[in-house]
């Protein structure tokens, strides 16, 4: 899933400065699962903003709504009849959701309330770790299911570098060396030949905005609103 964390409260307040009528839009998918921007987080943030406004003698009118997914038009439609009543939209979705919301309502400012952080896994409740950089050319088949692009601090395709320290990365003793892990796993599987080959320079595909059209589908003629 996409993992996000809420922006510092002061930063959110600074973004909202001058606005009196705010609609905070939560997202019920990734950011809800990682406890950053779902229904619960929307109500907590709204309560904090409401309280802070009152304490400052500058009360604001703030409402909340959480839709299933902000990155999907089908669910955004539910907002069409509501947004006109507000000066500004605060979005607790990932960066994709924020932009899709802003694209749908170009006359209304849409502000982010979270920092989108990574594609990761749920290690424990409230504890998430990055696993994928969505590079568009997955090498996991050769690297024992451990991503060197994400897990190696230098993103090396032909590691390990000389800084491996007792299985840790040179940047931090608490950070395991990705290539040490790759080596150990492939050794265990009897597949070290996978990394004997030199991986050539990568064809970086994430340097421009990417589009995916699945087989059998095509780009719609006009983008329906």
């Amino acid at each position: 899933m996409i993992v996000a964390k809420r922006k510092p409260f002061d930063e959110i307040r600074q973004l909202l400065k001058g606005y009196k009528k705010v609609l905070n839009v939560g997202c019920g998918t990734c950011v809800a699962v990682c406890l950053a921007g779902g229904e619960k987080e929307v109500s907590v943030l709204n309560a904090e903003l409401d309280m802070a406004g009152k304490l400052d003698d500058n009360p604001i009118e703030i409402a909340g709504i959480t839709i299933e997914r902000q990155c999907d038009r089908e669910y955004l439609e539910a907002l069409d009849s509501k947004v006109g009543n507000y000066e500004v939209l605060l979005s607790m979705a990932c960066g994709a959701g924020v932009q899709f919301l802003a694209e749908r309502y170009p006359q209304i400012p849409v502000l982010p309330a979270v920092d989108t952080t990574f594609i990761g896994v749920n290690q424990a409740v409230g504890w998430y770790e990055e696993r994928c950089r969505s590079c568009s050319s997955c090498v996991l088949g050769h690297t024992g299911g451990i991503c060197p692009v994400t897990m190696c601090a230098k993103g090396l395709y032909n590691g390990p570098c000389g800084g491996t320290n007792k299985g840790s990365c040179e940047i931090d003793a608490n950070q395991p060396c990705a290539w040490y892990m790759i080596y150990e796993r492939l050794k265990g599987q009897g597949r070290l030949d996978c990394i004997l080959e030199i991986t050539p320079p990568n064809d970086w595909q994430n340097q421009i905005p990417r589009t995916v059209i699945q087989p059998g589908y095509s780009k719609p003629e006009t983008t329906a609103k």
Binding site: K154, G155, N158, T199, P201, N202
Partner: peptide, 10 residues
């Protein structure tokens, strides 16, 4: 921002 467009091997 670390570049690491190519690695030392490459």
């Amino acid at each position: 921002k670390g570049v690491f467009d190519v690695d030392s091997m490459q």
